[in-house]
């Protein structure tokens, strides 16, 4: 045993074994990406930048002001202001998300009864100031438009609007019957 060990130590056998592994890897294609040049498309359902869904028909936000998202948020980053219009109907005056506080758990997306909120697959957003990451209602709606115009697919359906495997009885009627949002049609409308 000792002689064997001595021979191994003198001939540096273990070292050459290790080196053979590293030399083999030299011949393999690299697994890394040159990030700013080669961008990675996240998987569907990636929890990225927040946005308010613009209803394809009404062309305004879908929110019904039930305050469930505000209540469920573990980090209290959502603030909602409800006002009244001339017909004494409730309107959404302000809806803001503080992205510096948000922990991207997507609970708000899951509890929203009308799928008005979404965490989009957009992941490249940053700001020089804290106020750049404080999203107001207008910003959230324009983020949604921006996201849809850049989205590669024909239609969009967020995973957390109806998590796969979720039983029907746990969903509100609108969540059960939600259809994917057609993007091409919408883009044409905006163009015309």
């Amino acid at each position: 045993m000792k002689i064997q060990k001595l021979i191994r130590d003198v001939l540096l056998i273990e070292w050459f074994r290790g080196l053979s592994v590293t030399f083999k890897t030299m011949l393999v294609k690299p697994v890394t990406r040159l990030y700013p040049h080669v961008k990675r498309q996240p998987f569907p359902g990636f929890r990225g930048r927040q946005a308010l869904v613009r209803d394809p028909e009404k062309l305004k936000e879908r929110c019904i002001m039930c305050l469930r998202c505000k209540t469920v948020c573990p980090s209290n980053c959502i603030s909602i202001e409800v006002g009244k219009d001339e017909n004494n109907a409730r309107v959404l005056k302000e809806y803001s998300i503080d992205a510096t506080r948000c922990i991207y758990c997507a609970y708000c997306v899951e509890v929203c009864p009308v799928n008005a909120l979404v965490l989009t697959e957009e992941y490249e957003y940053l700001g020089d100031k804290r106020s750049d990451l404080f999203f107001t209602k207008e910003k959230l709606l324009s983020d949604w438009d921006e996201f849809l115009t850049n989205y590669p697919g024909d239609s969009y359906f967020n995973k957390f609007w109806r998590p796969p495997g979720m039983p029907e009885k746990m969903l509100t009627p609108q969540k059960r019957n939600e259809k994917p949002i057609e993007i091409k049609k919408k883009n044409e409308e905006i163009a015309s």
Binding site: R68, Y107, V111, P113, K169, T172
Partner: peptide, 30 residues
């Protein structure tokens, strides 16, 4: 099979179950 128990507590209100069948609109369900 299923992936979630019927007794799983609701996110917002700490009670189960989230039965919304038979409710008229989304808002009244809650």
């Amino acid at each position: 099979g299923e992936i979630i128990s019927d007794d799983s507590p609701d996110f917002v209100i700490p009670t189960p179950p989230r039965q919304v069948e038979g409710a008229g609109s989304a808002a009244s369900a809650f």
